[in-house]
Amino acid sequence: MTSKIILLVEDNPNDEALTIRAFKKNGIANEIVVARDGVEALDYLFAMGRFTDRIVAEAPALTLLDLNLPKIGGLEVLKRIRADERTKCLPVVILTSSDEETDLMKGYDSGANSYVRKPIEFLQFVAAIQQVGLYWLVLNEPVPPIRVPTR
């Protein structure tokens, strides 16, 4: 279970702290990698920048993606994930404040697997994280690992 990495793409440090707390509250002890903007998220996923040592094939089991991000927005990050052979099947859940219809539509259009609005009341937030974690990390059968040709 711990081998399944969660990528949390979140620019708000408070939300980051609360999200990590919510996972802990639910006893989900998976490693959580935090990317604080769109560029960091793509660097991590495609082993670039400060993540060059990473192996792309070891993709996160779940990516929680905020929409309003500095530099490269959440939707653009999602489109690039879907456009790349190595990451196109990655489970991506949009976790954001907005429940604007346009955001929902754009989110699904860009290839989101799920769209969850962050509840304000923390206990509800914990409940939401619990369900998301349980579903994607436990219940859902992931795509078999991509075989990268050995160099």
Partner: peptide
């Protein structure tokens, strides 16, 4: 404005509630 209200005004409230509970 609505978008900003939807996103940006909600985030601090989540912090207020979340950290109060914490």
């Amino acid at each position: 404005f609505s978008y900003s209200v939807a996103h940006d005004l909600r985030a601090p409230l989540r912090s207020i509630d979340g950290f109060s509970l914490a």
